[in-house]
Simulated scan of single mutants.
Amino acid sequence: MKKTYAVKPKTEIELQFEDGKSINVTFDAAAIQHLVADFDGGLSEALESEYTELCARIIYAGSMEHESDMSIEKAKQIVSNLDLETLTSIIEDFTDSLGKEKKAEIKEFQKKSMTEFMVKKST
């Protein structure tokens, strides 16, 4: 049986900061590999982490190929300075790159995590 796959390009984003600096983030197989290899619990645990932690891990993993000095601490610092809309967009762009099944699973978790995040933020 012959199968044909429509190849879609990897997702690339650029985070531009007020000071003129920018960071490139790519959602590809290398980013997934960093999520799997660099964190205990692998991809599943990374995808189920708290909202801001998830975004930090995504920025970390997606920028490792571009930013030699990237660390999870630096990614967390970046996330702490992002507005909620940008956080959500980054996570959505990443989940879009994972395919339909994973996206549906992550969307459900995001709803729960976002509610918890908003409750924490208001207290």
Rank of each mutant, 00 (worst) to 15 (best):
M1D: 01
M1L: 03
M1S: 01
T4Q: 02
T4H: 01
Y5T: 10
Y5H: 05
A6N: 04
P9R: 08
K10N: 07
E12N: 09
E12D: 04
I13M: 12
E14L: 03
E14D: 02
E14K: 10
F17S: 07
F17V: 00
F17R: 08
E18T: 13
E18C: 12
E18F: 05
D19H: 06
G20A: 09
G20I: 01
I23W: 11
I23G: 03
I23K: 11
N24G: 02
V25W: 02
V25I: 04
T26H: 08
F27C: 08
D28Y: 13
D28Q: 02
A29K: 11
A29D: 04
A29S: 13
A29Y: 06
A30W: 12
A30S: 13
A30Q: 12
A31V: 12
A31L: 09
Q33S: 10
H34K: 09
L35R: 06
V36I: 12
A37T: 13
D38K: 10
D40Y: 07
D40T: 07
D40M: 12
D40V: 04
G41I: 10
G41S: 12
G42V: 09
S44Y: 08
S44P: 08
A46V: 01
A46Q: 06
A46G: 05
E48K: 07
S49D: 08
E50G: 02
T52D: 06
T52A: 07
E53K: 11
E53F: 05
L54W: 04
L54H: 05
L54M: 02
L54E: 04
C55P: 06
A56I: 05
R57I: 08
R57Y: 08
R57F: 09
I58G: 02
I58R: 15
I58Q: 15
I58W: 00
I59N: 10
I59V: 03
Y60R: 07
Y60C: 04
A61Q: 13
G62E: 09
S63R: 04
S63H: 05
S63I: 02
M64E: 09
M64T: 06
E65K: 08
S68V: 04
D69S: 12
M70D: 04
M70K: 04
E73Y: 00
E73I: 14
A75V: 03
I78W: 12
V79N: 00
S80V: 01
N81F: 04
N81A: 13
N81R: 06
E85R: 10
E85S: 08
T86H: 05
T86G: 01
I90R: 15
I90E: 10
E92D: 05
D93A: 14
D93W: 02
T95G: 00
D96T: 07
D96W: 01
S97R: 05
S97C: 03
L98K: 03
L98T: 01
K100Q: 11
K100G: 00
E101Q: 11
K102G: 00
K103V: 02
K103C: 00
E105V: 06
E105H: 09
I106V: 14
E108N: 03
E108W: 15
E108Y: 14
Q110P: 02
K111T: 15
K111M: 11
K112T: 08
S113M: 05
S113Q: 11
S113R: 13
M114H: 13
E116A: 14
F117R: 01
V119Y: 15
V119D: 11
V119P: 01
K120W: 09
K120L: 06
K120C: 12
K120S: 14
K121Y: 14
S122M: 14
T123M: 14
T123E: 14
